[in-house]
Each structure stands twice: as structure tokens, then as C-alpha cells.
Amino acid sequence: MLVERRVLEVASGSAFLVHPYLAFQTTNHLFLGLEYASGGDFHTFLQRTGCLDITSAAFYAAEITCGVQYLHSKGIIHRDLKPENILVVESGHLRIADFGLSIDNMFGERTATERVGTPGFIAPEMLAGEEYNAGVDWFSFGVIIKEMITGTSGYNRRQPKIPGDVAKDIINKLLCNNPSQRLGVNGNIRQHQFFMHIDWVSLEALRVAPPHVPGPPTIRTSSGVFNIDHIESAEARRTKIRAEDQELFGGFSYISPKWRTFP
């Protein structure tokens, strides 16, 4: 939780990461207030739109690339990249979210060994219990591009047919078993032919219109139609947090400089 709180504050510097508005705590709970993404998660978005054409897939992949590269430049490895952890805002742009499994301070040659993440998106070096670095995110990214283009979720050895030589090439280079040779770690991913039509300066300035602008998601209940993606409920924790654990969260509270107050 502390790592996620730190990463969220860093995330404020990128247009392709979900932004925090506030963090606070009570005796029994920790709260994070994040920007609202009315388009829901990217997995649900892909289920609605179906397989994407190469141009659309390249646009979304480019936005994810910007977010991942920003995280890595700050020494952060996400470790659970998947469409469910990417949000779609009202304008149609993407925001990488859910930093609960992230690890920070991963600069230089520092590596990790902890096995985390979601089956089907975990890099082979992590599955093997080997030391790993930011290359694990690029492997997951390759699985995401494959899902965008083929509609199949998760990685397996018998991959479905991928349309287009350029798309097949970038996916194969991202899913390379050798992390030191994996695209993203090895070579400039932005120069791959898959992104040949991407104007990176305009993209990062959010001046490129997304290929799909989602309407507000709706659900129909006996009480009417609501413009929300889904409703989740959870049993509140009833055990009071120990005093020694409370001390770990000194300085947890946060208010974003971008927070706006209304009369």
C-alpha cells in the first residue's frame, strides 16, 4: 500500500498514468481518491469493440508505451500490466492504473526475484524464479498488443495467427524469452515499424484523437439505467489495525496540487 501511494504521486507527471487526487486514513482504513475513468477498464473496452485494426492498436500501444517508459524512468516496475489494469477516460485516452504490485527504486542494475502478477501475463524469467528487471513489463505489453489484435487474452505457446508482418514482428520481439534481447529493453521500441504512423510529440501532448471515444457505460437494473461500469461491494475490515502498524503510515495523507475546490 505504501508503494502504491508513492507510485501514484509519481504518476501525476504522466498523462498516461492514472492520477491521484488525495490519500487519507482513518483508524481502520486507508483511502485513495483517484481520477474517474468513465470508459471503464481496457479489457471491457476491447470486449465491446472487438479485435482492433493495426492502426488503432498502434495508437493504444503507443499510449501504453509512454506510460511504461515514464514509470521505468522513475525506477518503477509495474509487474501487473494487463488490460484490466488500464483505464479508459471519457476522451478515449488510456491511463495505466493499479500499482498495488509495483516495485520502486529499481534503478541501474538492481533486480527483483518476487513472483507476482497475473497468469498469462507473467514473463518467463519471473516464472522461473530468476532475477528480473523492467523487462517483465515489456513481456506483459507484448501480450496486451496480441490481445488487442487477435482478441485472445493471455500468453500461451500456441499463439493465434497474428495479422500483418509488422504486428507479428513487434509481438515476437516483446515476447522474447531472453529478457536482455527483448524489445523495450533492447533497442528503441518507438522506432519499430509498428509505430511508423505515430507522431510521438503530438501523442504525448494528447493532440492525437483516439480512434474510439467511449460513451458512458450503462447497466440496467430494476431501478433504472445507471451510467457506471460496475458496482462492487466488499466486507469492511473489522479488526483494528495495531499501533505498530499504524506507525508505518505516517505521512500517508496527500492532496494533489491539481485538486480543485468548488464553492
Rank of each mutant, 00 (worst) to 15 (best):
A62L: 06
A128W: 11
D165I: 13
V10K: 07
V68A: 03
A234S: 11
E90P: 02
F31W: 12
T221F: 11
P124Y: 05
Y132L: 04
V166P: 03
M196V: 13
A234G: 09
L174F: 07
T113A: 08
I170D: 01
D104S: 06
A57T: 02
I149K: 02
Y70S: 04
A167G: 00
P163Q: 13
G67N: 07
V185S: 07
N188L: 08
V185I: 13
N133K: 11
G151M: 03
H212L: 11
S38R: 11
F194R: 05
Y254A: 06
N186W: 10
R5A: 13
Q47H: 11
S38P: 01
G67I: 10
A23K: 00
T55N: 10
G154M: 09
S140T: 06
I228A: 07
N133V: 03
P214A: 07
Y36Q: 01
L81V: 01
M106S: 05
V7T: 01
L2Y: 03
P214V: 10
L87P: 00
G100L: 04
L206T: 12
R48S: 10
V10Y: 05
G184K: 07
W138V: 09
N188V: 11
L2S: 10
S233Y: 15
G75H: 10
K173Q: 12
N105D: 15
P119F: 09
R260A: 10
I96K: 07
L174S: 01
N227M: 12
M1F: 09
E130A: 15
P160M: 09
V3L: 00
G75N: 03
A167N: 02
C176K: 12
E235P: 05
Y70F: 15
Y21Q: 06
I145Y: 04
F31G: 00
E109F: 15
T118V: 00
H19W: 10
H43F: 14
N227A: 13
S180G: 01
V116M: 08
G151I: 11
T49F: 11
A205V: 04
F141S: 04
G50A: 08
R238V: 12
P83Q: 09
E204I: 15
L203A: 05
T65I: 09
P211M: 12
E90Y: 06
D199Q: 13
P214L: 03
A209T: 13
I145L: 08
N186F: 13
V10F: 01
